[in-house]
Amino acid sequence: MDDYLVSVLSNIGVISFVALSAYLLLLTGEISFGQQAFFAIGAYAAGMATAMWGWPLALGIAWGAAVGAACAVSLGIPTLRLRGLQFSIATLAFAEMVRILFELFRYQVDIDGEPVGPNGTDGFRSIRYIFDHNIETFDFMMLIYTMLAVTLAGFMLLERSRLGVIFRMIGEDATLASLQGIAVARYKVLAAGIAGALAAVGGGLYAHLTTYVEPRTFDVMLGVHSLAYGLIGGLGTALGPLLGVVIDVGLLESVRLFAGYRMIIFGGLVALLLIFRPRGLLDERLVNRIGRLFRNAISGSTRTGRGSR
């Protein structure tokens, strides 16, 4: 496989994690501008684990995810009672604080005669795990996609589970959900924690993919992009945000023709798309319709065409 293709696909895979993270919160009715913070926390934590403390990759990424989840929960609790724009801006403020703290964060150790570790605005270089362990970029891409597949499977299960129903219910109307006896606060914090862990896994993979990270990688742009992916691809299924990432990174990547005009065309297309499909390409209605077709096809021989209501 072409090196270039591998790098583009790897990028798509890694960014998908943040997009899914923002999507999970959208399900519970929260618009977060701050998922990039957990992406950053995951990247730094996992990078420090493998590059400075010599941990194996799996442990490093799991550690990153744990730290990300812990931070997300500790953000989730004070922001519980915030809604709408206030929640969004609080997450934005948090994420920017995290970014600036990483700009101030210096912690280096000597490895093979060279200082390794986060170094303020210069960032964190030499996260060389895949080079030290001779992992081919193709294999690393496969690792990213395996983990993405596992995550997607998790989302599919979630959509069918009670938990998924509760999440969507809270997203529709939190007051109504609490009247049904659902502990809204607990589920919101749970969702925040899972979303934080997801973004952090993406960050850990990203740090090892590029071998370097720096604070400005994690600014608002990344957060708003990851939110936009769900809206472009569709809010009806976890494949929506993925589709969004593929459209943004993949399609634009292949259309070199537009070079200097690419955001002009793409921005305009997204705006037009949202007029006609305000909840994205794969919105709930389309997903339901496809699901119904699918079910009808299976049970079609026993029932009449009218099938479900």
């Binding site: 194996p56 990759l57 799996a58 442990l59 093979d112 030290d132 362990h133 001779n134 983990m147």
Partner: peptide, 13 residues
């Protein structure tokens, strides 16, 4: 995820 990543070689520094 842990099982998948643990399978990787832990080679020389």
């Amino acid at each position: 995820v842990a099982a998948l990543t643990a399978g990787y070689p832990q080679a020389a520094h």
